[in-house]
Design a protein around this nucleic acid. Structure first.
Lengths: 174, 174
DNA sequence: ACCTTTTATTTCACTGGTGAAATATGACTT
DNA sequence: AAGTCATATTTCACCAGTGAAATAAAAGGT
């Protein structure tokens, strides 16, 4: 049996036994939580596997992609922290790494010179365009056997979950 | 707008622009990947938030739960590594931490004395029973507004995704 | 001109996790 | 009995990320 499937089986049995001991437990929801965490860990590993040859880690890749997909190819550290969900400390390190490789530049903004402007370089764009296509088959294979309806449904449910999570974090750690 | 929702909006726009530049990109699948990663990161934070007061991190909690849910309350380091998806190095540290708190014991197995037997203590069981219930409302709230059908569907789709991920990792890094 | 605020950065100590190599132990094979 | 294998652990150097505090720089309000 394969790794993830194996873990999921164990999890199912474990939660089954737990919910006999602690009947108030929301067993179905707990299962979904564990499923989410396990599957996404594995998904992340799968993507990292394609990044490693390029000596990129996940957050460097993500930062680069955010910059690429901006209309003007630029952003500020603060914005990048927000969208890549990284702390400022870490973003500094990420930016340092990408600047050293010549994939982005970092300079003072013209309008508001407090701000630092981070901008993807032509070399950065070429790099992305070269490394991206080999990832496509892998991403497509992950969702093999998913009907269009399955994909729509998964998207809908994840967004709904995201909405609930936002509510939760707003009320308890605002 | 809330944090996650905000990030998702940006992601949608970003992938929209990317798929105009690189039309072969499997845009729907890429969106689902990003959604999975973002949502599960947030979900994990939400759970950690409830663990922090108990000075437990996610993998310590998981290890403890695995032990609790075993019929005999015990396991071996190797097995725990597998089901908690942790390296041996890390499991040693986790076990050290839990032993120090008196929540588990670690001793040589009787039958096969190569093996180490890790076993949850009565104090460990009490600890779990005390800390678990306060997490329930949080977990339930995450899936507020999910019909039974939604939950079944999400479970089905995540398991399908898990299956595909297993296939992927078996063929490419076996 | 002065004060406040925003923004970015750096530094430091820390947590959490990885990977590789070395060591120990004892089971299994022959 | 000797050799091989499996298991667990430790150690070491490392990567990735956090949180808090200190510093810098300049915008904006008064």
């Amino acid at each position: 049996m394969a790794r993830l499937t194996n873990c999921i089986t164990m999890m199912d049995e474990g939660i089954g036994r737990m919910s006999q001991i602690v009947p108030q437990m929301p067993a179905a929801e707990a299962r979904l939580c564990r499923l989410m965490l396990m599957v996404s860990t594995s998904l992340e590993e799968e993507l990292e596997f394609k990044l490693k040859p390029h000596k990129l880690n996940h957050s460097e890749f993500l930062t680069l992609m955010i910059l690429y997909s901006r209309p003007d190819g630029s952003s500020t550290p603060g914005e990048l922290c927000e969208f890549a969900t990284q702390g400022a400390t870490n973003m500094t390190r990420i930016a340092n790494a990408l600047v050293k490789r010549g994939l982005i530049t970092r300079g003072a903004s013209e309008e508001d010179r407090r701000r630092v402007l981070i901008r993807i370089t032509p070399a950065g764009r070429r790099f992305v365009l070269k490394m991206l296509p080999p990832m496509f088959p892998r991403v497509a294979t992950m969702f093999a056997g998913f009907s269009d309806n399955d994909k729509r449904n998964l998207s809908r449910l994840l967004r709904k979950l995201a909405h609930n999570l936002d509510q939760l974090s707003e009320t308890s750690h605002p």
